[in-house]
């Protein structure tokens, strides 16, 4: 490729970096500025004083938003829901995936096919009965109500099963000869060997639950059970254009996910193509 088109490609790529990333920097920077400054001047890359140009940072917006809604509590709620739902998903989905991949039992293929077919059904078809069932199980307006109805996923079972099928069966046969039980094989052989797919499934389940809005919206009514997206959504519908609050709340919501993403990026990018191109 000649030099000019190479330069052109780099320019485009860098321009898109600005488009994709700079709004987040504006947001974080704005959340640290004085509200008066924020409303009289537009976006700025760094939280500087408009007159002197020096850095001037305040945490007042965060204090104010935490006085309006219990953001600390919401943070812990989100963390609890996302972590517990992820652990449940990893354990039970892998358990089932292993059986579908390796154990022969009657109607196996039929059950699996039937479950896969259910993936076509949009969430909104089951949303209303799900509220009703969760209510009847005594989990309405509770954190467990956010966890249990999403504690497993047929789609994840499918992904993990595909991976387990690819594991050489000799490893399990060796373990059987050593006197390992079925569950022993699952726990000591299959789970360690499935780490790559479990990392992908785990991170996506965490992300889904951390960011989920619709389900908390229909299930949760009391403030001390809010998750971060739900609280932020309520803030948006109620206090309209108080951007100094919205941006502080959005920053609190976004930062943990971005940190996790930067640590686990490899798995996230792999996971995106997993279901799509191979599926």
């Amino acid at each position: 490729m000649d030099r000019i088109s190479r330069i052109f490609i780099y320019l485009c790529l860098c321009a898109f970096v600005l488009v994709m990333v700079v709004p987040f920097i504006w947001m974080a920077s704005a959340s640290l500025r004085q509200p008066e400054d924020l409303y009289s001047h537009g976006v700025r890359l760094l939280p500087t004083d408009p007159e002197t140009g020096r850095l001037s940072v305040t945490l007042n917006n965060y204090r104010e938003v935490m006085a309006q809604l219990p953001f600390g509590r919401m943070f812990l709620n989100s963390l609890f829901v996302a972590i517990v739902a992820t652990l449940f998903n990893l354990f039970f989905n892998t358990l089932a995936a292993y059986a579908f991949a390796r154990i022969n039992f009657p109607f196996k293929e039929k059950i699996f096919g039937f479950m896969l077919a259910s993936l076509m059904i949009p969430f909104y078809v089951i949303m209303i009965p799900l509220v009703y069932i969760t209510k009847n199980l005594g989990m309405y307006d509770s954190l467990w109500g956010l966890i249990i109805p999403v504690c497993m996923s047929v789609y994840n079972v499918f992904l993990i099963r595909q991976f387990i099928i690819g594991i050489p069966i000799e490893l399990e046969e060796a373990a059987t000869l050593d006197g390992c039980s079925r569950f022993g094989i699952f726990w000591h052989v299959i789970i360690p060997l499935s780490k790559p797919v479990l990392a992908v499934v785990g991170i996506f389940t965490f992300m889904f639950n951390w960011n989920n809005f619709t389900w908390p919206l229909v299930l949760i009514t009391s403030q001390d059970k809010f998750t971060l997206p739900l609280g932020l959504g309520m803030l948006m519908t109620q206090s309209g254009s108080k951007y100094h609050l919205l941006l502080a709340g959005a920053t609190i919501t976004i930062i943990p996910m971005v940190i996790i993403f930067l640590i686990m990026q490899k798995y996230i990018i792999k996971g995106m193509t997993m279901g799509a191109v191979k599926g």
Binding site: M20, V21, P23, S40, V43, F213, P229, Y243, M257, Q265
Partner: peptide
């Protein structure tokens, strides 16, 4: 580059909406 283009993808759509509401503001928006 991949990493940068991915960041909006992994963040909560509610937080994104809050951010864009500000960018779209008729007076103070970018």
């Amino acid at each position: 580059f991949k990493l940068c283009y991915f960041i909006p993808m992994i963040t909560s759509v509610i937080a994104i909406a809050a951010l864009w509401k500000w960018l779209y503001d008729p007076v103070t928006g970018f």
